[in-house]
Amino acid sequence: MISVTIIEPSFIIRQGLVSSLSGFRDIEIHKVYDEFDNIEVIIKKIDTDIAILNPSSIDQISLAKLIEKDSEFFSKRIVLFTNFPVGLDLESAVRAVFSYHQSEADIVKGMNKLVAELNTTEEPKEEVLSKREQDILRLIALGKTQKEIADELFISTHTVVSHRKNITRKLGIKTVSGLTVYAILNNLISMGELQ
């Protein structure tokens, strides 16, 4: 997941950016600013992976000054989204440049490239329960309390709770009755044992 700040004074373009970027699975919009008066303050506050900024809303000299002050920040995090062609100087000072006139396919391709470069989350993988988690799941399904499970396996109740959390996260099942059904379906317990 990469986090994004949007800084865009125009209502319609801001809404357009928010709604198109919301369609990306790995992009999360953190903050949206609609003003440019405090651009210096806003830029200082940016804590997201990237910030999308419309350069035509700031005068060239102020922008150049801002870049000069923190060139590393601009080259890493600032993405320009612009109606006018920007000079080569500006283009090389920022992370990426998009233009209003690019096609949907080009913008999607460019955004996906950014995501691929910045995304630190791992690809989803198949979740497998460890042997220990299976033991605990079995006991949960048999209706044992956390304390009983802890005693039986010679571990602390704290450890039982943390295993239980992992089981729920891995399986996507939260309730005891749901876990019981899972345990039967996967032959961790038999119907006979339940009675």
């Binding site: 399986l171 996507g172 099942i173 939260k174 309730t175 009755s177 749901g178 059904v181 899972y182 379906l185 996967n186």
Partner: peptide, 19 residues
């Protein structure tokens, strides 16, 4: 909360774990 969780579990069981 419990009522909502059960429904959530049921959907996952049907989609992921039933034969």
């Amino acid at each position: 909360e419990d009522i909502e969780e059960k429904l959530f579990d049921l959907k996952n069981i049907i989609m992921k774990y039933l034969p």
